[in-house]
Every structure is written in structure tokens, then in C-alpha cells.
Design a protein around this nucleic acid. Sequence first.
DNA 1: CTGGAATGTCAACGGGCGTTGGCCTACGGT
DNA 2: ACCGTAGGCCAACGCCCGTTGACATTCCAG
Lengths: 193, 193
Amino acid sequence: MTAATEPTRPRRSDATRAAILQAARDRFAAEGYERATIRAIAADARIDPSMVMRYYGNKEGLFAAAAEFDLRLPDLTTVPPGQLGEALIRHFLSRWEGDETLAALLRAASTNPGAAERMRAIFADQITAAVAAFDTDPAAAARRAGLVAAQTLGLAFTRYIVQLPPIVTMTPEELIAWVAPTLQRYLSGVPEN
Amino acid sequence: MTAATEPTRPRRSDATRAAILQAARDRFAAEGYERATIRAIAADARIDPSMVMRYYGNKEGLFAAAAEFDLRLPDLTTVPPGQLGEALIRHFLSRWEGDETLAALLRAASTNPGAAERMRAIFADQITAAVAAFDTDPAAAARRAGLVAAQTLGLAFTRYIVQLPPIVTMTPEELIAWVAPTLQRYLSGVPEN
DNA sequence: CTGGAATGTCAACGGGCGTTGGCCTACGGT
DNA sequence: ACCGTAGGCCAACGCCCGTTGACATTCCAG
């Protein structure tokens, strides 16, 4: 190895890398994994398809880079216990509107095993960890996290992918009003009332 | 035209047609629209790919035939109002387990506009019609139907497509116990309560 | 100023896809 | 027994895909 280079000296190609990643997210979100072609992504980014290969190895590598996603869940222990549901759904909605990474992940997870695995990891790990803060039974916490994921992903699926008219039409505040109590019960309630 | 033939005289090719349809449903459900190839479907059905074209015109026509789906919702007016949620989720679960058509539709709806349109039609029309039986405000009924679809499709998506471990592990009865109250509130409750 | 590394272009490959049209086979009405 | 026709196969077409390797250009350290 050479002597330690400056850790973050900007490379000239960083702009290209970023352009590719942005175009990839757009295409993956709009068309899903298999319909989004390397050639179209490269054209959007105004470079040659071979550059995509140089920087990301292959299509799977590109998707892995483009679908990097963090729910950025807040620390639920600082939220009043009665407002957990509202805090969660509010956070999810604001996290999605304006970041198409989740749409890309959702579309791709339907057909691409790697994307499905990524989705499992994100929702199982991150939500379960957040829930585990106040339900100390691991199995119960996982179940609660799964139910939250089911309601949450269902909302995202119908609003952003299928675009079911009544769900698309509803304002964030309306959605919050309806869904918050559901999440609240999944987080802290007991089954069958 | 010739004189009216017997309306339902079985053609010799009916078995082939059915085999193609079954193979198509399997492949579409397992791999989604674009990964499921006509060639693979034909191989599963042990016939030549050109037969698929002869009988279904093209790939879209085949999918349209394979994704024919009816929720077969029961008449909700005969259900005690307090058990609407449980009746619905129970019906959905039994309708899905063992019929992969919905999985095919779900997977395909993520990437195929026609499949998404079909999904919208099924859930908007059929559920809305069922809900309209006891909420006479059309806009409110559509909203309730949308929320039911969101929760329901989210459950299907996490259980059959993404296969989120805690959701896959739960028994139908456990799922019913958790989800029934949610649907009950979406059907007959008021927001933020 | 110079030479090597970084950045980017170009043309082509092998392969799989949906789809087509021609040809063979065997059933079944007359 | 005949033969029209429905059912089925085969080979090929044109297209687009992911991916590759050779070549051109730009940058920057020495």
C-alpha cells in the first residue's frame, strides 16, 4: 500500500457516480428491477453504459447501491406511550414523500429475491429494534414489528405503487388519523381487543 | 355463420388451454410478469411456445386470462355489524391460501401497468360495493374500502411476497385476532379515536 | 514537459426474449 | 374410406438485454 492518502479527497468521477445513482433510483422506482435497463439509466445520466459496469460491477451491484435505505426511526422511548402510533405513521409518511428509494425497493422486492431480502432486513431489524425498547419479549416484539410493517407497507403499496384512488386522494393528515390508532394497537395492544 | 352449434361442446384443446393457464399462474405468481417467460410456461405445460400465442394472442393476453380473479366477497349485510372485520379478514385469508392468482396479481402489479389497473378495479370496485351496502355516503365508502385494501394487501404482500418472518410464522387465527379489529374500525369507525 | 493513471467512448459479443409462418399429424363428420 | 380442419411442432426472425475489451481523451504528479 502507499502511504495513507487523504481519506476523502474528492475524485473527479464522483459527479458521474452520483448522476448514475440518481438515474438508477428514478428508473428502478418507476419501472422495477427488470424493466429498468442499464442502457436507459446510462442515457439518463448522459454517460456510456459501460461506465455503470466500471463503477458498480453489474446490475445487481447498481441496485444494491441505489436501494440503500435507512428508515431513520426516531427513538421511541422519548415519545409519550399514548402517541407511539401517531409518531410512527407521521414519521413514515414524511420519510417517503420525497424519497423514491422506498418505491424502488417496493417495486423490486416483488420480483427480485435480493431486494426482498433487503426489505426483510430493513423492516424486521429496524422496526423490531425500535419496538424492543418497550416490549422485552423478543417474540412478541417481532410480531408487533411485523404487524406494523404489514400495515405500513400496505399503505405504501396502495398509495405509491398501485395508486388506489381513495388512498392517493387522502391527505397525510387523514391517513394519520385513520392509521395511527392501528399502529398504536399493534405496538402496545393485545389481540382481539 | 353456420347454424348455432352446441354452446358448450368440449373442444379437444381444452386440456391444453387449461394446462397453459395453470402453468402461467404458477410462473406469474412465482416470478412476476417479466421474469415469467412464455417459453418457460410452455415447457411447464409440455407444449410448444407457439401454442400459447395461438390460444392467448400474446403475453399480455395470457396474463389477462391467468389473472382473472374474483374476491367472492360474501354479502356483508347478513353479517352481524360487530363481526364485519373478522368476517372480512377470515374470508380474505381463506380466499388466498391455496389460490395463487392473487400472488400473481400482486407481483405483477408492481411492474405491469395493466396488472395494476386490474388490481385497482378489483379492490376499488368489489370492496367499495360491499362497503356501500351500509355506508351510503359514496366518498366515505370509497375511503373505507381503500383503507381495508391497504391493510389487506399489506398483509398479503408481507406474508406471500416479501415473506417477512413474523408474519409468515403467525397462524391464520393469530392474524385474524390482530387484524379483525383494524378492519372493523376502517369499516364502521371514525378517524382518530 | 511528460508519462501514466483516471475517465470516458465505441463497437461488438452471446444469449434470451416475444413472436411468426410453414409444415406435419391425426381426429372425426360424412 | 375420405379429406377438411383443428391441434401441434419446428426453425427462424428481429430485437434488446447485460456485459466486455480495445481504444481515445483528460488530468495531474514528477
